[in-house]
């Protein structure tokens, strides 16, 4: 819901984080349609992850982390579903029912003792080492957003870092799946 200028009621305004997952036809411009809808209607995009997940059916899965009230997120779902290339839209609140994962690549620059201390933090955080030199290393950190935030906070104070992060991915726990109109698992 774009904020109505007439909306004065504050009771329904509890803002929370949600993850919106949309299954879309992988065609030119589809990401622009979805992201343009968010910017055009004043919805927030905290992070975004998108890739083709079914090559035969040419279906991509777009995962958007957003902030909003419950009503706003329901509006987002209804609006995104109206787009022609969109097949399904699910909303996942941040809770234990759903698995969330993000990935970060972190390049650390430093020498001697500092480099060793930084490496130890990475080992403690179960990061995977992808590259090492005498002045730097690159690790891959995997986990929930808050876990990666914490890890980056710790290592950032030791020296210079270059960070690349993905958006969140989300999947509901259990055997339940999302199906398209023909009953095929998405």
């Amino acid at each position: 819901m774009s904020k109505s200028a007439y909306e004065i009621d504050q009771n329904q305004k509890k803002i929370e984080r949600y993850v919106v997952v949309a299954w879309v036809d992988n065609e030119a411009g589809v990401l622009a349609r979805v992201s343009g809808l968010f910017s055009g209607r004043g919805y927030n995009i905290e992070s975004l992850a998108v890739s083709e997940v079914d090559h035969d059916r040419k279906i991509s899965r777009i995962t958007i982390a957003t902030l909003g009230t419950q009503a706003v997120v329901k509006q987002i779902q209804a609006q995104v579903l109206k787009l022609v290339p969109v097949h399904k839209v699910n909303i996942y609140p941040i809770n234990d029912e759903t698995i969330f994962r993000e990935l970060a690549l972190v390049k650390f620059l430093g020498e001697g003792k500092v480099l060793e201390t930084a490496k130890q933090i990475c080992i403690d955080n179960k990061c995977q080492f992808l590259d090492k030199t005498s002045k730097s290393f690159i690790v891959q950190a995997l986990g929930r957003r808050t876990e990666i935030d914490d890890f980056i906070k710790k290592i950032k104070v030791l020296g210079q870092v270059s960070i690349s992060r993905t958006g969140a991915l989300a999947m509901k726990k259990g055997s339940e799946t999302v199906k398209d109109n023909k009953g095929q698992v998405l």
Binding site: M1, S4, A71, K74, Q75, A78, Q79, K82
Partner: peptide
Amino acid sequence: DPSSINKI
């Protein structure tokens, strides 16, 4: 239009 429901 389902997106009209509860919009305003």
